[in-house]
Structure formats: C-alpha cells, structure tokens
Design a protein around this nucleic acid. Structure first.
Ligand SMILES: [Mn+2]
Ligand SMILES: [Mn+2]
Ligand SMILES: [Zn+2]
Ligand SMILES: [Zn+2]
Lengths: 138, 138
DNA sequence: TTGAAATTGAAAATCAATTTCAATAATTGT
DNA sequence: ACAATTATTGAAATTGATTTTCAATTTCAA
C-alpha cells in the first residue's frame, strides 16, 4: 500500500485529492503506532499548516469506510487509528512504546467449536489482540 | 456473587450503603447484557427515582475498581459495563440481542510462543472476544 | 478556461464525562 | 436514642471530544 494507492482509492470512490487529505494520509500511513485524531492533526500540520481538525475527522472516517485504516481498542482509550491489516490478521501492541505489529495464523476453530457446543451460540466473528513488549522495549 | 456481596464489598472498602448505590448495583448485577451509564440510569431510576446520572458514573467507577464489573468493547462503542467474569474468562456476545456469556478454556500458548519467535515481542496479555448469535436469536 | 460540485476551516452545537459545591444521609461513638 | 462526624448526593457548571452548519475556496471534468 503506497501513498499514491490510498489517494487513488479515495479518488476512485468519488473523492478529490486535496492538500489537506494528502497531509492526513501521509501522516497516518507512515505511522508505526496508532494515532488519535488530535495526534494526526498535530503531525499533519507539519506538512500542511492550514489543516483543520474537522478535516482530520472527516478524512479518518473516509479511510475507515474504505478499510484502509482501522480503530485500535486499548485499555486507555479506543480513539486511535492505524493502517489496516491485510486479510485475516490481528494486532500485537507494545505496552511501552505503542508500536503495532500484525500477525496471522491463529486457529481458533477448535476453541469456537467447543464453545458452540457448550453454549448453544453460533459464533460468527472474533476479536483477538495481544499486548507485550517489543524487541526494543523488553 | 449476590447483591448483598457487592454492597458488602463496597462497605468493606470504606463506602456507605445508600439507596442510590443499591439501585445501581441491583440494576447492573441483574443484567444479562452490557449497559451504558445512561441505560443504567434509566433502569435504576425505576428503583430509586431521585437518582442522579453523576452517581451512576461514580458508582460504576467504584465497581470497576473493585473488579465487580468490567467494560465491554464493541464495534458500536466501548462505554458499556457487565458483571465481571471470574478468573481467566473471555466474553461471548450475541450480535442480535446483546446477551453476554463468559467462557474459559482458551489455550493461546502455542500461538503466542510462535508469535514471540516470529516477532521478537514478549507477550504479556491478550484480549479475546467472540461474537455470534445466542440460542434464541439464531 | 469555466463552472458545477466537492471540500474546506471557523464557529456553533451537541454529547459524554468530570468537577464543584451546598444540602443531605449514613455511620460512629456516646 | 442522639448527636457529631464524614461520606454521599444531585444540580449546575465545566470540560473535552466529536459533529453540524455554512459561506468561501478549491478541485477537476468538460
Ligand atoms: Mn483470528
Ligand atoms: Mn485467554
Ligand atoms: Zn516498544
Ligand atoms: Zn441473542
């Protein structure tokens, strides 16, 4: 996913390419950790100083609709966003520095089937998130 | 966990037993689904009509401190609370009616060890949540 | 180049959550 | 039972995040 590609996808969905959007897109796309709207605002203004916070909210909303970013839920808050993972992936977060990694290969089928039998529920989705310390922080 | 026990635990931690707290405790404790502060407010006022929303927030805060309730994160929002699970348990939520069940017996050790090797992270915690349809709703 | 349509940021409005505070209610010691 | 002490209360004000409104500007297809 390159910078151009995010802007292209916006364009393909009837959006116009503007300086404000470029600044937001470049900021969020390059971040190794999840950013809140205000953090995006502060960082993106270094690229385009006339940027308004409202446009940050509006752009994040569009990027989330297109599944280019995703919301990250954490004990401290659930307002931050990160570049979306690809396919079936889950998040691994460093509790120290906030660095985000994606992983895949989790197999929850045995677990969910056993729980379906025990509870009578039909399981459709799961949320899985790991927390720990990254190589630098541990 | 009976009603008395929650109020006793509050009392043991230096809190007084009041009508307002009784109403909030009885409401949250008896709920099969997660409730937001405003939902607690509306339901608890049927028991004690003079209740204030501020007291709901304050009581929920205390109950969470004592680990008697826990916050439930969902796609639509992360403000709701439910009676806490016991020991190492995770949530199973009905997407239709919101009914909450707890389950245990998940074994993520093989997965986390493999991810520790792949990523160099030291994994400390995990969040797991299942979504689906309960017996009645499916 | 032109003009329609999307986008912008400032300001106002909304909504959830917290703080302040004087009045009230629960406990403690008598 | 009865004060005296202290926690608790709800109303109102405040804060902080997000959304809406709107007139001015910018983008882009023709
Ligand atoms: Mn998975
Ligand atoms: Mn587990
Ligand atoms: Zn780290
Ligand atoms: Zn259900």
């Amino acid at each position: 996913m390159t910078d151009t590609s995010w802007l292209n996808q916006l364009q393909d969905n009837g959006c116009r390419v503007t300086s404000a959007r470029r600044a937001v897109v470049e900021t969020v796309q390059g971040s190794p950790r999840a950013l809140t709207p205000v953090e995006v605002f502060d960082l993106a203004r270094q690229r385009y100083s006339a940027l308004g916070l409202v446009t940050v909210y509006r752009t994040l909303e569009k990027l989330e609709e297109l599944h280019l970013i995703q919301r990250v839920h954490q004990p401290h808050g659930c307002q931050a966003f990160i570049s979306a993972g690809h396919g079936h992936q889950h998040l691994l977060l460093c509790k120290q520095c906030g660095q985000v990694e994606f992983f895949d290969g989790d197999d929850l089928k045995p677990l969910t089937e056993s729980i379906e039998q025990r509870t009578g529920y039909q399981i459709q989705e799961h949320w899985l998130q790991l927390f720990g310390l990254c190589e630098k922080c541990k």
